[in-house]
Design a protein around this nucleic acid. Structure first.
Lengths: 336, 336
DNA sequence: CTAACAATCCAAAACGTTTTGGATTTTTGA
DNA sequence: TCAAAAATCCAAAACGTTTTGGATTGTTAG
């Protein structure tokens, strides 16, 4: 509740001097600075955030908008991401405000409110889409932002994403090394950028091995993947390994295999991507790939802060290595 | 970038009138109000948040601090909670700022910063602890807050929690109804309030059935629970059902059972609590209990808004029903 | 016709900072 | 010793709103 004026009065100083003492200006004597510091500490003085923001013309706020479809947001990963970003924003003196908006009109309105109302110094866009209206809008403004994931929208902006193409190449090679020859890729809808990249990685590796790639598309959820997997696995000439674009899809495959009496990994190797918390608990535990979230959050936060500090610097594209997490769901194919 | 002054000038009105027109005061004519509205809309005018907050003396911000141990926060549930609260805060004109702090000194400092710097109109405290320094501190201030979970700290504050006692009573009865007689409860450390409540519910139900309850304590994580479960299940006279305080502990039990060659649910029934995303993917899928998060988030948000609006109203204690989610991990005990 | 009242508008103060542009005192250099 | 320079301080302006306390005009009642 204390103001800088009360503090100044109690010290017999002007508010100018108190302000400058607390802000490490050189035109206040060491003695005075010490006195002010001590008094501020003792009285628990904190500058009123609204006042300083108004005067300084900045918000000390960064914003992230959760794209919540029908009020839900079933993405356990993001809480870790937020937790990892938190300390960096705190250290830099920024508050992170978290908003929610369903994709669509409402979403863009939310972004407009942030930008036009000057409610944030920077924005984090997550779950990039191929044709992303958020990115298109932000490019027309001068609000600094960073994107997690890749989009087809062209323009100068910083982004961070896992190297899905390389990861799926490596994953395919791993399966090949185990002796698999008939490997099918269960792909996510090509509307997602990540889907195309992962698929490309898989197909390139197959070609390099002189094998014919085979990608089957399905919605990126457990149930649709389950249905598609039932089909694939019921076939006479079924594959010995199924490389899934996401863990959720892999869960569907595991269920389908169980139902058809196929043993994993003896009869079928399964791999996913994301390393969801659930993937350590499936039976057998799922082999998967992971973009380490702690690092990612940290990097994303630093990228945004950098963007805010020097908006004219060249945006960076950080494509990060994805880690292969090998668990029990893959093995050499049984020789029949 | 537009200010109210520019808008006023462009209309040939005073800023007073513009401000009051936009705020539905009665002392501005309908015609003027319409003109102002239209011009504001057209120019995309948004009041500067910092200025209005300074003048009004409120922040239009509510805060939640994630208790992150060693920089991580492995609690997938909270993202859903946040997603559920979001729309209600947006509707009421509040921004939600999300901070992180490791439990301990740093945590209390963070709360002081919020309170003393007047950085939020209200606070959400999650993961209440039995002796909770955050609650003790907040009670000494006049900052409105609501607590998720229960604590031993006494005082007038609003809280929301699942009725763990009742839920574990019901769960125990369900196992009894299936025919189990030798049911062991794997309890979380008694430092957590929820642990004591769940244990009480279990023990009461056992007593009511004329059976001797048996609770074994373990850290509320997978690995410790695994170790304890190995012990319990290796015993000659092992239980036919293990009721776990949390899903994570149940995962440990499932692993231990698998390793000992015990089939679930034929040889051992297992139950957990939380309904983590992973619990639908275990084999067999875990029977568990859930505090519906969408409802909870909504309720929590409304409780806080209420608390902000009328701080003198009597605080409410909302103990919510927990839903039993029956999956494949429980069955009648095999008659040996 | 006038006093009272209603309707509509506005100038200026206030919110609590930071920053500008000196003012005053002390020290230094020649 | 005196002018210049350095050190230290401060009054006042500014940030963009909202709100207070009228001022002005038009309308109504007697």
């Amino acid at each position: 509740m204390s103001t800088i004026r009360q503090l100044a009065d109690s010290l017999g100083l002007s508010i100018t001097t108190v302000s400058r003492a607390l802000d490490d200006y050189t035109d206040v004597s060491a003695l005075t600075r010490a006195r002010v510091r001590a008094a501020a500490e003792a009285s628990g003085y904190r500058p009123n955030a609204a006042a300083r923001r108004l005067r300084r013309g900045l918000t000390e706020v960064v914003t992230m908008v959760l794209p919540t479809a029908h009020g839900r947001f079933d993405e356990p990963l993001y809480i870790e991401l937020l937790a990892a970003m938190g300390p960096h924003f705190v250290k830099a003196g920024y508050d992170l405000t978290l908003l929610t908006a369903p994709p669509g009109d409402e979403e863009i309105k939310t972004y407009r409110r942030i930008v036009e109302g000057r409610r944030a110094d920077g924005i984090i866009v997550v779950r990039a889409r191929r044709d992303d209206a958020r990115i298109r809008y932000l490019l027309t403004t001068d609000t600094p932002f960073v994107v997690m994931g890749r989009s087809d929208v062209v323009g100068d902006y910083s982004l961070l994403d896992g190297d899905g193409m390389k990861a799926f190449g490596v994953a395919t090679e791993r399966l090949l090394a185990l002796g698999h020859r008939h490997i099918v890729h269960l792909a996510a809808p090509s509307a997602f950028t990540f889907s195309t990249l992962r698929r490309t990685g898989y197909e390139a590796a197959m070609h390099a091995a002189g094998l014919q790639p085979c990608s089957v598309e399905s919605a990126a959820e457990t149930d649709p993947a389950y249905a598609v997997a039932l089909h694939i696995l019921a076939d006479e000439n079924r594959p010995t390994a199924l490389l899934c674009a996401t863990d959720r899809m892999a869960y569907g495959v595991l269920r389908a295999a169980r139902e058809l009496g196929l043993r994993v990994p003896q009869d079928l190797s399964v791999m996913g991507h994301d390393n969801l918390p659930a993937s350590g608990q499936t039976d057998p535990a799922l082999t998967t790939m992971e973009l380490p979230l702690a690092d990612t959050g940290e990097r994303l936060a630093l990228m945004l802060l950098e963007r805010i500090k020097t908006p004219d610097a060249k945006p960076v594209h950080d494509i990060r290595e994805v880690r292969l997490i090998e668990r029990g769901s893959i093995a050499p194919p049984m020789t029949l």
